[in-house]
């Protein structure tokens, strides 16, 4: 087994769950999230020996792939007909599940790039500059999306369930 493969295998074993979650929070669908991981990580394998920061590359590639998944004409035009339907936010008997579904529904209501900015900044801990580089957009856009995303999230989460 080559060094590349050994190292890549170890990296994937350690990071796949986290990257899958990152993709999920970006695109809002577990199936699409796995598609995004499957689209992104083989690229990392190919470039493994040329990349210094594998973690940063993987994060960026996965988030961008997750955004791409939501931009595909098939997704955009046929999502309502596909088997990748968004999970429904229905109240559950337990508060924990209820809260989780509420939060997911709130995230689902944010535009995908705002979600990606929030996830990269607050879950992955990237700076504005790093987030801008990851999403290939100006730093000003990251700042605006952060402010708008947080405000929208706050507004949605504070709204009563009955009004959603």
């Amino acid at each position: 087994m080559s060094d590349r493969e050994t190292q890549f295998r170890e990296f994937v074993a350690a990071r796949m769950e986290s990257l899958r979650g990152l993709a999920y929070l970006t695109c809002g669908d577990w199936q699409l999230a796995e598609d995004a991981v499957l689209a992104a990580l083989p690229r990392l394998y190919v470039k493994w020996n040329r990349i210094d920061n594998h973690d940063a590359y993987a994060r960026t590639a996965v988030v961008r792939a997750a955004i791409d998944e939501t931009r595909r004409p098939w997704w955009r035009r046929e999502r309502s007909h596909s088997d990748a339907l968004p999970e429904r936010a229905e109240p559950d008997a337990t508060h924990a599940v209820h809260d989780r579904l509420h939060l997911r529904a709130a995230l689902d209501r944010l535009p995908v790039r705002q979600r990606a900015v929030l996830v990269l900044r607050f879950l992955e801990g990237l700076s504005v500059q790093q987030t801008a580089a990851a999403l290939k957009c100006p730093e000003g856009t990251v700042k605006v999306y952060t402010a708008r995303g947080l405000a929208a999230l706050r507004q949605i989460l504070e709204a009563p369930y009955a009004n959603r």
């Binding site: 493969e5 890549f8 295998r9 994937v12 074993a13 796949m16 769950e17 899958r20 979650g21 999920y24 929070l25 577990w30 796995e34 991981v37 499957l38 990580l41 083989p42 990392l44 394998y45 190919v46 599940v97 809260d99 989780r100 939060l103 997911r104 995230l107 929030l118 996830v119 607050f122 879950l123 801990g125 947080l150 999230l153």
Partner: peptide
């Protein structure tokens, strides 16, 4: 917010992907 985001992905379904799938795809 970071706790909220962690919570939102807390009950992930079992992964369909395995390490081998990604290595093979690579």
């Amino acid at each position: 917010i970071d706790e909220l985001l962690e919570e939102a992905k807390a009950d992930a379904p079992p992964a369909r992907l395995a390490v081998d799938d990604l290595v093979n795809a690579g």
